[in-house]
């Protein structure tokens, strides 16, 4: 059994900032656009090192999306940066027409996603963005789980031709994928198990690993699979996993409607119907609080993943 331990914590947005700097060093087509949140998105290093390739867009996200499309037409690889709320819901039609339908090679990079944005409250805590983005034909949707994976994903997407939504967050979070490979659309096995498979994405991967440890002490063997790419979904990895465990839990910092769980339920319903329990926000907005308080209050804590796993096992 693999046991993942961590000593260090870092925010996933720093993984984006460092990844952007790294990929820009290698690829001079990479350009960065930011809507007045350069510090929050950790784009300063890129901006300082490549000022001619950095475009300050001001508080004008719709124009940022269109400008990115225009840059992409000319062969650049634009990375847009703002909060997830303003990266998606605020500019949905601009993304739909100028990027997705027009198939432009734009990387929409979205920080401060989900409840763990914390104290700023529900206006900024978007929990619908994965759903919005995954519904767009041709859009790749990636939600990495820690600093290292976010950095790897930021570098990797430059080589992927087509629009990408890359979602990450604000809080410092354990780093545990440093030596792991990242391939778009390829699920990562984080922990072996035989009684239940936990499919987790983003920050909830760590909570799921913690839950699996606790479950093991209680005699339940939980497999944990990191679905960093929600679209295209790694159907084979998911179906192979549940062929052994016969039940599943999904875990994500997103609405239940439209999220990872929803995608996995569709896949299982069409192929191999079996018990699924979903750890996600249940048709509710968030509120102010610390990230950990919010995860607990809205049912996304370690204890919630444990409870969901037990329910799933009991329904087999």
């Amino acid at each position: 059994m693999t046991t993942l331990t961590t000593m260090e914590k870092k925010d996933t947005r720093s993984g984006f900032g460092d990844g952007l700097y790294e990929v820009a060093k290698k690829n001079d087509k990479v350009v960065g656009l930011c809507a007045d949140l350069t510090g929050s998105l950790k784009m300063n290093k890129f901006q300082d090192e490549f000022p001619e390739r950095f475009f300050q867009m001001g508080i004008a996200e719709a124009n940022m999306i269109g400008t990115a499309a225009g840059l992409a037409i000319s062969g650049k690889i634009p990375y847009t940066g703002t909060f997830a709320n303003f990266s998606t819901g605020r500019v949905y039609d601009q993304i739909r027409q100028s990027i997705a339908y027009s198939h432009k090679n734009v990387k929409i990079c979205a920080s401060h996603a989900g409840l763990t944005l914390g104290e700023d409250g529900a206006t900024h805590q978007i929990l619908e963005d994965i759903g919005l983005m995954k519904m767009l034909p041709g859009m790749t949707v990636i939600n990495p789980c820690d600093y290292s994976q976010t950095k790897a994903a930021t570098i990797e997407i430059a080589d992927h031709e087509g629009p990408v939504y890359l979602r990450f967050g604000r809080p410092k979070w354990p780093i545990f994928t440093t030596d792991m490979e990242f391939t778009i659309g390829k699920a990562l096995h984080m922990r072996e198990g035989t009684d239940v498979t936990i499919f987790a994405t983003g920050h909830l991967v760590w909570n799921s690993l913690e839950a699996a440890k606790a479950l093991a002490e209680q005699g339940i063997s939980a497999e944990v699979i990191n679905i960093h790419t929600i679209k295209p979904l790694d159907n084979k990895a998911i179906l192979d996993a549940v062929a052994n465990t016969k039940c599943a839990v999904t875990a994500e910092e997103h609405q239940m409607n439209g999220g990872l769980g929803d995608s996995i339920c569709q896949l299982l319903a069409r192929n191999t119907p079996l018990p699924v329990e979903m750890v996600a926000v249940n048709d509710s907005f968030g509120e102010s609080g610390t990230p950990m308080e919010l995860l607990e209050k809205y049912g996304l804590g370690v204890k919630d993943v444990i409870a969901a796993a037990k329910r799933a096992v009991s329904r087999k």
Partner: peptide, 11 residues
């Protein structure tokens, strides 16, 4: 369209 034009003009 003007936003797209801005991007191409910038490029």
């Amino acid at each position: 369209g003007l936003s797209v034009a801005c991007g191409t003009a910038q490029a």
